[in-house]
Design a protein around this nucleic acid. Sequence first.
DNA 1: AAGACGAAAGTGGTTGA
DNA 2: TCAACAACTTTCGTCTT
Length: 310
Amino acid sequence: MPELVKKCPECGGINLFWNRERGEVICKDCGLVIEDKMVDFSQEWREFDSDDGAKKRRSGAPMTYTQYDQGLGTEVGQKADLFRLGGKERNKFFRLRKWQYRISTAIERNLKLALAELKRVSSYLKLPKSVEEESARIYTLAVQRGLVRGRSMESVVAGALYAACRRHEVPRTLDELSEASGIEKKEIGRTYRFVTRELGITILPSNPSDYIARFASALKLSAETQSRSIEILEKAQKAELTSGRGPTGIAAAALYVAALMHGEKRTQREVADVAGVTEVTIRNRYKELLYELKLDKEIKKGKKKKRVKK
DNA sequence: AAGACGAAAGTGGTTGA
DNA sequence: TCAACAACTTTCGTCTT
């Protein structure tokens, strides 16, 4: 179990809020995201190997997709049954059993490896349990449909995780997934698109504000700046500035502007690195924000002087 | 000297014929 | 399947603080 944080290491406040869904502990006083990197140390208690698996199987186990057989085992008969069968029946029994063993081992061996990998990456990125579950479900479906053929197992795992993150509105960038899984960014994107299309999973376009909390905390920005940037994002969305653009770039620009307003200046480079975009992109979004939303004056409040021409 | 700004050329993905 | 296109990146020169 993760050790529970009692006090905010930043401001000493005790007003902490644990957002389980997002796997974050947030200090309500200063906005710091304290534990967004909690690692799941819980152990795998299931025995995967075929034969003595039955011994450890127990009733009442939670049904979960992060276990290769969803926690439910199916076997063609038990040894004891053999004594009740005649020769012909006995042959049939062996045939069935062998057959069942073959298909199940191919898929199950794959799932066993894949889910281990999935857990590894998920824990590295500190993804909440619900997302891990979802991605395991997606992966399981993908295997059953034979979508992994021709693709590396790892890339499908990464794609499933990416899709699950999006669905749960806790998006991670492709860069982050790439770093955690060691799979190339474009490869993840490709399998992600392929898998979601084949499985008919609907993906709502990710919302820039979903990134704000994480970026803001990485930049150590105040809670006011954070909520300010959310406001900016809302206005930007009304002004049609967000469609067609990369959500991370917009989030980064909003954060950059909000930081200027509150006198918590961060360089474009700092913001760009955290958000995984370039300074140029921030500048472009930033220009649009200034022009469309007329934010010049408010920035001057935060900064001494700042002339902006359009 | 570092940061901000902008122009130009290149990349990968989407779309429409 | 190919070409046009938009968003974003890379690179680089110039201006500002």
